[in-house]
């Protein structure tokens, strides 16, 4: 009997703790991103920045501007969370195109974990910004009758985030795998190019929706 392709394969089990493939790949991506960031930011200069520094500044400044425009507030306090979310999603989504690797986001656990982090971060930041009572009152807005629906919508938004990401990435990899199995070596290349685009688009969508959720929680924008 074959395991479900939707199930994360266990690479190694540390007692009762199973270390699955997406966790291992994520560790690799984390190591690569951290090492790359440390190396790239080792010699930053104010005058005459190099190409790598210019790209880094462009990425960071673009992320900050997009987040700020979406939240309609200063994005600097939220940049580490939301910027890392976009960068990790982009790298993780594109990592599936590498031979022998499977994108961590193609597993529901990873998408659910990110959605859970966004959900909890939104609650924590909302409470920190508006106070517990002020934040809770927001769920009874505009009328207390909508309190159950508002609470439910918080959960469904996180659920939809994770399902959207998981479905898109997983389906893209499945299609490429099936085409690769049925056709030749270079036939899936256009699909891989499309998957490249889809991976970036999904990372952008996930990040923007997370930004909207957090912006609604801290009160800078209306809740969607």
């Amino acid at each position: 009997m074959t395991d479900s392709p939707l199930t994360a394969p266990v690479v190694v089990a540390l007692g009762p703790l199973p270390i699955t493939l997406p966790v291992v790949v994520t560790w690799g991506l984390m190591a690569a991103m951290t090492l790359g960031a440390a190396l790239a930011t080792r010699r930053l200069r104010v005058e005459r920045p190099g190409r790598v520094q210019t790209v880094l500044e462009l990425v960071v400044e673009t992320l900050r501007r997009e987040i700020g425009e979406t939240m309609q507030a200063d994005a600097t306090p939220f940049l580490p969370l939301l910027g890392t979310l976009f960068l990790y999603l982009a790298v993780a989504n594109l990592s599936g195109l590498l031979p022998g690797l499977k994108a961590p986001t193609a597993f529901l656990e990873t998408a659910a974990a990110l959605a859970l982090v966004v959900l909890l971060s939104a609650q924590a930041l909302g409470i920190a910004k508006r106070g517990l009572w002020g934040y809770l009152k927001g769920f009874a807005h505009p009328t207390p009758l909508l309190l159950p629906l508002n609470l439910l919508s918080e959960l469904t938004r996180a659920f939809s985030l994770s399902i959207r990401l998981f479905g898109n990435v997983m389906s893209g990899e499945f299609v490429i795998g099936i085409v690769l199995a049925l056709a030749g070596l270079f036939v899936p290349v256009p699909l891989m190019a499309l998957e490249l685009l889809l991976g970036l688009v999904q990372a952008y969508i996930f990040t923007i929706l997370a930004t909207v959720f957090i912006g609604g929680a801290v009160g800078t924008i209306e809740k969607g």
Binding site: I19, P22, V23, T26, W27, E109, A113, V117
Partner: peptide, 9 residues
């Protein structure tokens, strides 16, 4: 896995 991925992130 969900917990580890959240912690990893």
């Amino acid at each position: 896995t969900l917990l580890l991925q959240a912690i990893n992130f």
